[in-house]
Nucleic acid binder design. Sequence first.
DNA 1: CCATTTAGTTAGTTGACACTTACGTTAGTT
DNA 2: AACTAACGTAAGTGTCAACTAACTAAATGG
Lengths: 107, 107
Amino acid sequence: MDTAFRALAEPRRREILKLVWTEELPAAQIAARFDDVTRSAVSQHIGVLKAAELIVERRDGTRRLYRANHTQMDRLRQFLDEYWTGSLQRLQHLAESAEREKGTTDG
Amino acid sequence: MDTAFRALAEPRRREILKLVWTEELPAAQIAARFDDVTRSAVSQHIGVLKAAELIVERRDGTRRLYRANHTQMDRLRQFLDEYWTGSLQRLQHLAESAEREKGTTDG
DNA sequence: CCATTTAGTTAGTTGACACTTACGTTAGTT
DNA sequence: AACTAACGTAAGTGTCAACTAACTAAATGG
C-alpha cells in the first residue's frame, strides 16, 4: 500500500502508468517519450511501478512489454473509500457500546 | 497532487488522518495515540498533511484543532478515476482523428 | 562465435525525508 | 511580570530515493 502511494507520488511514474494504461509498450518506447531523462532512470521507475504491482510485465523474446494493472489501481480507490466506510463503522461501534452501557448500568 | 500522494505514502500520516476523520482533535491528543514517536515528529507530520490540504486547522486560544479535509480526499479519488475516463477520451480522440484522416485523404 | 538490439544492474552523487533534541511563541493564570 | 500549557520551528543526523554513467545479460542474425 505504502509502495503504491509512493510510486504514484512521482509525476514521471504517473505519466509512465498512463502510457501503458490502454496499450502494451516496451521499455524503449516508454523511454522515448521522455527527452530529459535516461533509459536507466525509466527502467528504474518501471521497477518501482512493478514492485508496487501497478504494472505487469510480459516477455516476448528480447523485448519486455508492460501494461497497467487496473486491479491494483482499483484497490487504491477502494482504500480511499474505506476512510468513509471505516469511520462509519467506528461510529456504529460507538453507538452499540453506548447501547450496551445503558444496559449494564441499568441491570 | 504529488504532495497529497506523498503524504498518504506514510503509514503514520494515514493513521493521523483517520484519527481526525470524524472528530476534531488537538495536536497533543493526536500525539498521545503514538507511544513510539515524539510530539515534535507528529507536529511535523501534521505540517505535511496541512501542506497537502488533507487536513485543516482551527485555532482556539492556545489550542489548534485539526480535522480531515474530505474534499481533498475526494479529489484524489477523482484523480484515480481519470485514469479510466482520461484514457477513454484519448481513444475517442484517436477515433475522431481517424475519421478526419479518412475525410482529408478522400477529398 | 561475434556483433547488435533490448533491457536490467551497479556505483556513486545529490537531495529529500523522518526523526530527536533544544528553543521560540502565543494564550491563559497567578 | 513571571509561570505554565500547548504548539510550532530550527538544527543536526541517519536513511532512502532519483538520477547519470558504465557495465552486464539474454535473444537474434550472420
